[in-house]
Amino acid sequence: MDFEEIFAKLYPSLFRYLNRLTGDPDVAADISQEAFVRLLQRPLPEADARRWLFTVATNLVRDWARAGERQRRLLRDSYRGPTRPDRPDESAERSLRIAAVRAALAQISPRDREILLMREEGFRYAEIAEVVGVAPGSVGTLLARALRRFAAVFGEQAAGKSPTGTDENLNEE
C-alpha cells in the first residue's frame, strides 16, 4: 500500500481523533498534517503506520497542550451555556450538546481522553498501551475508569450543571 492509499485510509480517522482530543479543528488539521509529513519521511507498512501516526500525533497534542494556555482557554470558553450557540447555523440544542461534550472531556484527564478516543477509533488494548505509554495490562482498568468518569461528568453537563475543574485536568499527568 503506497503513501497515498495510507493517507486516504488513515487521515479521516486521525483528524477525527485529534479534533475530538483538542476541540479545535484547526489544531487537528495542523497536527494531522505534521504527523503525515513525518510519515512521508519515514515510509512504514500500513499496519505500523497507523499506530506510529497516532503516537506521533498524540505526542504533538501533548506538546501543544503543554506549550500554553490555548487549549485550556479554548475548552473552557467552549461552554457558553444554552443561550449562546457556538455557530449561528447550529440549533441551540445541538450547540448545548457540543458544549456539554467538550466540557465533559475537559474534566477528565488527558490520558483518559486519549485512551477513550483511541478506543473509539478501534484500537486494540495493546495498541492503546503503546501509543499512550502505559502497561498493556493496565489498559482495561484505565478504560473502565475513564468511561465511568466521562459518563459521570457528561451526565452532569447534559443535566445543565456548570463545568468544574476544567483547567487543572488539561495539564499532563
Binding site: F15, R20, E120, A151
Partner: peptide, 16 residues
C-alpha cells in the same frame, strides 16, 4: 460515549 463525541465531528479539511 460514542454518541456524545460524534457530536464534535466536523469534516476533515479536503486540501490537506
Amino acid at each position: 460515549l460514542a454518541d456524545a463525541i460524534s457530536a464534535l465531528d466536523v469534516p476533515a479539511p479536503a486540501l490537506l
